[in-house]
Simulated assay, not measured.
Amino acid sequence: MTNDTTDWFGPEAATFGDRVAAAREAAGMTQGQLSRRLGVKKSTLSGWEQDLSEPRANKLSMMSGLLNVSMTWLLTGEGDGMPEPGELELEAGDFSSVLSELRELRAELRAGSDRAARLEKKLRNLLQNAAQ
Rank of each mutant, 00 (worst) to 15 (best):
Arg118Ala: 11
Asp51Arg: 03
Ser64Leu: 03
Thr5Tyr: 09
Trp8Met: 04
Asn3Pro: 00
Ala13Met: 10
Gly77Phe: 06
Met29Arg: 12
Lys41Gly: 15
Leu88Glu: 08
Glu120Leu: 06
Pro83Gly: 11
Gly65Glu: 15
Asp80His: 09
Thr2Asn: 06
Glu104Phe: 02
Ser64Lys: 02
Asn129Thr: 08
Lys41Leu: 10
Arg37Asp: 12
Leu109Asn: 10
Glu120His: 10
Asp7Lys: 12
Gly77Lys: 07
Gly77His: 05
Leu102Asn: 03
Val40Cys: 08
Ala131Gln: 13
Gly77Met: 09
Glu12His: 13
Gln50Tyr: 01
Ala22Thr: 06
Pro55Gln: 05
Glu25Val: 14
Leu123Asn: 08
Ser97Tyr: 03
Leu126Gly: 03
Ser43Met: 11
Asn58Ala: 11
Leu66Asn: 02
Leu66Ala: 02
Met62Gln: 15
Thr76Asp: 03
Ser53Met: 03
Leu99Thr: 10
Gly112Ala: 09
Ser97Arg: 14
Ser53Pro: 00
Ala14His: 08
Pro55His: 05
Leu88Arg: 15
Asp51Thr: 03
Asn125Ala: 08
Leu45Arg: 01
Thr30Tyr: 00
Gly17His: 06
Ser61Asp: 12
Lys41His: 13
Leu67Ser: 05
Phe16Asp: 02
Phe9Pro: 02
Asp7Cys: 01
Lys42Ser: 09
Asp80Pro: 00
Met71His: 00
Ala22His: 02
Ala23Lys: 04
Glu25Asp: 08
Phe9Ala: 04
Pro83Trp: 05
Gly17Trp: 12
Trp8His: 15
Arg24Phe: 05
Gly10Lys: 04
Ser43Pro: 00
Ala131Lys: 14
Leu66Gln: 12
Asp18Ala: 11
Gln132Asp: 07
Asp4Ile: 14
Gly112Tyr: 01
Gly17Lys: 09
Thr44Phe: 00
Ser61Cys: 03
Arg24Thr: 09
Leu99Trp: 02
Asn129Arg: 11
Arg24Asn: 06
Ser100Cys: 08
Arg24Ala: 07
Phe16Ala: 04
Leu109Phe: 09
Gln31Val: 15
Ser97Gln: 14
Ser113Arg: 13
Phe9Leu: 10
Thr2Cys: 01
Glu120Val: 08
Ala21Thr: 05
Gly112Gln: 13
Ser100Asp: 09
Met1Trp: 04
Gly81Ser: 06
Ala130Lys: 10
Arg37Gly: 00
Val69Arg: 04
Met63Leu: 09
Asp4Ala: 11
Ala92Leu: 14
Ala117Tyr: 01
Lys41Ile: 01
Met63Asp: 01
Gly10Thr: 12
Leu45Val: 08
Ala107Ser: 12
Ala57Gly: 04
Lys121Arg: 14
Leu126His: 02
Lys122Leu: 13
Lys59Ile: 11
Leu99Tyr: 04
Met1His: 07
